[in-house]
């Protein structure tokens, strides 16, 4: 189903160069399509009143990274460190200033929306659906980039939707209204929608935040298998550092709009690094059952 070209000059990567981003205006005004103004304002930003007061107006302060196919990346960091903004830039929702995002060597700003939608899928955090579509209709929306205007879903689209609904375990409520589902069930539907978008890159923005542990593990295994078998790349924002460590190949630690550290999961699951970013004292050790290094935490109150 998934067709990824490799070799022959085309490399399936997202490359991020010198990424910066700041919200224009005082407290986050609309920022898209304002690249030029941002650029001119940049020098001024550094000695703006907010900057002097210690409130960073720049959310992303220079990130260079590369995401390759067939890998599972996790982005970790404290609240407000710019994870979601970073993700928004990666999916082309916000425009960096300065800096650029390259998908297979092409600047994302120059790629039409429809084409981006065939490269990048997103499961957003706590998404709501405002009208009572059935679950199946919502999952079918994931095929939108492949269905031409005015035409009907093809055989292949229907197959793919059925297949994904079965693997994510939502086929039982295929004909229920999405507005009637619980938060976790709805999240699974939106996850299925992103899966059947069949993109080389799958972005998960705290996609598991209200899902039970059974379904979290099930869905993580699905995407993990897709990275291994189909060569998809998964870029996920996590809060649970241990879950991130079990499923990820690469961890990216973010702090105050910068990448504090990144590397293989084994290297990044390090007591000092975690303490440096999150200001907590963990004990990290290889856990044979989890087949990964895991961090243990404890209360500072109880003796």
């Amino acid at each position: 189903m998934l067709d990824i070209q490799t070799g022959e000059g085309t490399v399936t990567t997202i490359k991020v160069e010198n990424l910066h981003f700041s919200y224009a205006g005082k407290n986050g005004e609309g920022t898209r399509n304002r690249t030029k103004r941002e650029f001119h304002d940049k020098s001024r930003h550094h000695d703006s009143p907010q900057e002097r007061a210690g409130i960073p107006s720049q959310v992303i302060k220079g990130i260079d990274l590369e995401f390759h196919e067939g890998s599972f990346y996790s982005i970790l960091g404290p609240n407000g460190c710019g994870k979601t903004t970073f993700l928004d830039i990666l999916i082309g929702h916000l425009k960096p200033a300065p800096g650029r995002v390259l998908i297979r060597g092409r600047n994302i700003a120059d790629i039409p929306r429809m084409e981006i939608a065939r490269e990048i899928a997103l499961v957003a955090q706590n998404d709501v659906v405002n009208f009572p579509f059935t679950v199946k209709e919502v999952v079918m929306m994931g095929r939108h980039p492949y269905i031409r205007r005015f035409s009907r879903p093809s055989c292949r689209d229907m197959d793919r939707v059925d297949e994904v609904m079965e693997s994510t375990g939502i086929q039982d409520f295929a004909s229920r209204r999405i507005t009637e589902l619980s938060g976790g069930e709805r999240q699974r539907c939106l996850f299925a929608r992103a899966l059947c978008q069949d993109t080389p890159f799958l972005f998960l923005d705290e996609a598991f935040s209200n899902m039970d542990i059974h379904h979290t593990i099930r869905l993580l295994d699905i995407v993990k298998r897709e990275t291994m078998e189909k060569g998809r790349a998964v870029i996920s924002v996590f809060h649970d550092i241990n879950f991130a460590a079990i499923w990820s190949d690469t961890l990216v630690l973010m702090k105050e709009g910068r990448v504090a550290a990144w590397g293989t999961t084994h290297d990044i699951m390090d007591e000092n690094l975690i303490h440096d970013v999150f200001h907590v004292k963990p004990q990290v050790s290889y856990h044979p059952y989890a087949r990964a290094r895991q961090a243990c935490f404890r209360s500072e109150v109880m003796q």
């Binding site: 898209r32 928004d88 999916i91 929702h93 929306r113 429809m114 084409e115 981006i116 939608a117 065939r118 990048i120 899928a121 997103l122 957003a124 998404d127 709501v128 659906v129 405002n130 009208f131 579509f133 209709e137 919502v138 929306m141 994931g142 939108h144 980039p145 269905i147 205007r149 939106l190 978008q197 972005f203």
Partner: peptide, 25 residues
Amino acid sequence: LMFARDLNLISLGERSASSLGVDTS
């Protein structure tokens, strides 16, 4: 009618709709 399907997608929220290829603005 031309934008009916895009209108469906917009009900998923602006961010998701745009990740599905809709120029929401």
